[in-house]
């Protein structure tokens, strides 16, 4: 009798230990991995403009990395004072324009890695002639946003 009880107990124990394992085996494991959007933009650092040059290469805006959501893009806007300032005599300035393909550049949207915009800087000859001697500088701030494509 005791032997029978022991066998039944062992069989029951085995059965219960097997049930959870088989239940686990039939479950589906879903793994979620979220890729956060990220990007990297290269902006021009500065440029030296030869004296009396009416046009000079300013640099390139380039998308170096871009992991973007489907309906999003990168907007790069340029905020410039539009004047180069004499380092020694700040009252002396030279107006300039930043151009892309001979048109004034203000902003551009980008959607993928590798896209770029080449920029030139233009100064009129008459403005060079009016300028005092010395070194002129201007820093430009680029505003970079992650925006809807439309």
């Amino acid at each position: 009798m005791k032997k029978k009880q022991l066998i039944v107990t062992v069989l029951l124990a085995l059965a219960f230990s097997v049930i959870p394992v088989s239940a686990k085996a039939s479950n589906t494991i879903s793994v979620m991995y979220q890729v956060d959007p990220s990007y990297e933009v290269v902006i021009p650092s500065y440029t030296d403009i030869p004296y009396m040059a009416e046009m000079a290469t300013y640099g390139t805006i380039q998308i170096k990395e871009a992991v973007l959501e489907e309906d999003k893009c990168i907007l790069v806007e340029m905020n410039s004072s539009g004047v180069l300032v004499n380092e020694e005599y700040p009252q002396s300035t030279i107006p300039y324009q930043v151009l892309h393909e001979n048109k004034p550049f203000t902003s551009q949207k980008y959607t993928k890695k590798g896209e770029e915009t080449k920029l030139d800087i233009s100064i009129k000859k008459e403005d060079w002639k009016k300028a005092m001697g010395g070194t002129y500088k201007a820093e430009i701030t680029f505003t970079i946003s992650y925006v809807d494509k439309k």
Binding site: D36, P37, S38, Y39, E40, V41, V42, I43, P44, S45, G59, T60, Q62, K64, K72, I74, F142, I144, Y146
Partner: peptide, 12 residues
Amino acid sequence: QIEGIRIPGYPR
């Protein structure tokens, strides 16, 4: 070398 300044973007 990249000519320019690399700016990292921070969407969120």
